Amino acid sequence: MQAKYLIIIALLGIAGLLGFNIINSSHYEDNKAVAINTVEPPESNDKPISTTNREGIANKPLDEQPKAIMDKATTQINQAQQTEQERLKKMDSLQ
């Protein structure tokens, strides 16, 4: 009899966790939709960060690939920092 109760408790626990997961994922989707709707669209003078440069890196010799990857990452970081600084200047001018 004790094994029967243990199985019932385990099934109830699994059902509870499944219900929690369903509720939590719906809240996550709602928050994600709100976050997407509140993000400003990029301005026309913003430079898009290129993510299609994988072919260029793959065509380089193996000894140059790590350097190419680091250069690409550094360029993306610099572009992101420049965009952030421009947005901060805009926010300061609005205040």
Rank of each mutant, 00 (worst) to 15 (best):
A3E: 03
Q95S: 13
L12I: 11
P48D: 09
R54A: 11
Y5H: 07
N59G: 14
A68E: 02
S44Y: 05
N24V: 05
N31M: 11
L88Q: 08
K32T: 06
N24K: 11
T83I: 05
N31Q: 11
A10L: 08
P41T: 07
T52W: 07
P42A: 09
E43A: 14
I22K: 03
A15G: 06
S44K: 07
I36A: 14
P66F: 10
Q76T: 03
T52G: 15
S50T: 06
N24D: 15
I36C: 01
Q85M: 08
N24Y: 14
E43G: 12
Q95Y: 14
K72N: 12
D46K: 02
T38D: 04
T38R: 14
R87N: 14
K90D: 13
G19I: 06
E29F: 09
K89S: 10
K4C: 03
R87M: 14
E29I: 08
Q79W: 02
Q82Y: 09
E40C: 00
D30Q: 10
Q85C: 02
S44G: 00
I69V: 14
L88W: 01
K4S: 06
N53V: 03
R54N: 03
A80W: 02
S26K: 05
I36M: 07
P66N: 08
S93G: 05
N21G: 10
N31G: 10
N37P: 00
Q2G: 09
K4V: 07
G19C: 07
Q82L: 14
K47I: 15
Q65D: 05
D71Y: 02
Q79M: 12
P66W: 10
V34A: 13
I77A: 13
Q81M: 07
A73Y: 11
K72A: 15
